[in-house]
Design a protein around this nucleic acid. Structure first.
Lengths: 137, 137
DNA sequence: ACATTAGTCTATTAAGGAAGTAGACTGAAT
DNA sequence: ATTCAGTCTACTTCCTTAATAGACTAATGT
């Protein structure tokens, strides 16, 4: 399960994708449209900015906007940025790898299965971009 | 990410699968072999028994064993029993469905993507059984 | 220059779940 | 009767998630 934070981040990114090229979008506008607690959303957007996915402008006429075209950011990247691992178990994670305490990866049955699952998931999430995250209307 | 509890459960099931047909296996044996805190393991095994996956025998010569042949239990079933949802987001979960607060599933971009991911994951987890969970040796 | 707007930073907190522990109880075998 | 081994009840500790408050900083328009 993705955390609320990750879900909020994805929704916000989808919204900003749909507004791409239209200048800065207010936090409050995203908050209201997507029903995300504004203070919580602030920290999330800031994090996405630090990660380089978003850029911002302060003051009047300010707001947040995508740093690059929505098709350039994949779902896999977006999830990892705020939500951490995509894999179901640390020892098969590409970006958040941690060795299992006890088991030997060469023989561990759980390892093999989880790896297969991860591959299937990644195959999708690395193909989908923020374009697909936009709502239809 | 699967919880420790779920990981322990899967490891224990894999071990019991490898001992299938050999009578009851001691909790302490599973605990030692798989490096799982014994008291925590107790509660997990009990839960699996209540769910019907395991059976047990008390007293001398007692222990836990699979209720049916390992090929009869899929990974998807096992994970759901102790770990809850497999989907990344509640609104695309088959067994733990919850409606999104705000979004319309017909138009939500996140919904579509997450559904595709869930399908890919399930396709694997419903094919794999406890047989694949056994360690090679 | 100054007021307003809007993002940035620090800090704190409430709630809940994950992980693990302790000890008494019950049923089965010899 | 004794021992073995699972069962049950009740905690405790810790960490993460989710959220809030309020002061600070930068940009804009007049």
């Amino acid at each position: 399960m993705l955390s609320k934070k990750t879900q909020y981040a994805l929704k916000a990114l989808g919204y900003l994708a749909s507004k791409y090229g239209q200048g800065p979008i207010l936090i409050s506008e995203i908050s209201q449209t997507k029903k995300i607690p504004i203070k919580f959303l602030e920290t999330i957007l800031l994090e996405l900015k630090t990660a380089g996915v978003l850029e911002s402008k302060k003051g009047k006429g300010g707001g947040y906007y995508l740093a690059q075209h929505p098709k350039k950011t994949t779902m896999a990247q977006a999830i990892r940025l705020v939500g951490g691992p995509i894999a179901m178990i640390p020892c098969v994670s590409l970006n958040f790898y941690e060795k299992c305490a006890d088991c030997d990866e060469a023989t561990c049955g759980l390892f093999k299965t989880m790896k297969a699952t991860r591959d299937a998931t990644l195959k999708i999430l690395e193909k989908k971009t923020l374009i697909e995250l936009m709502d239809e209307y």
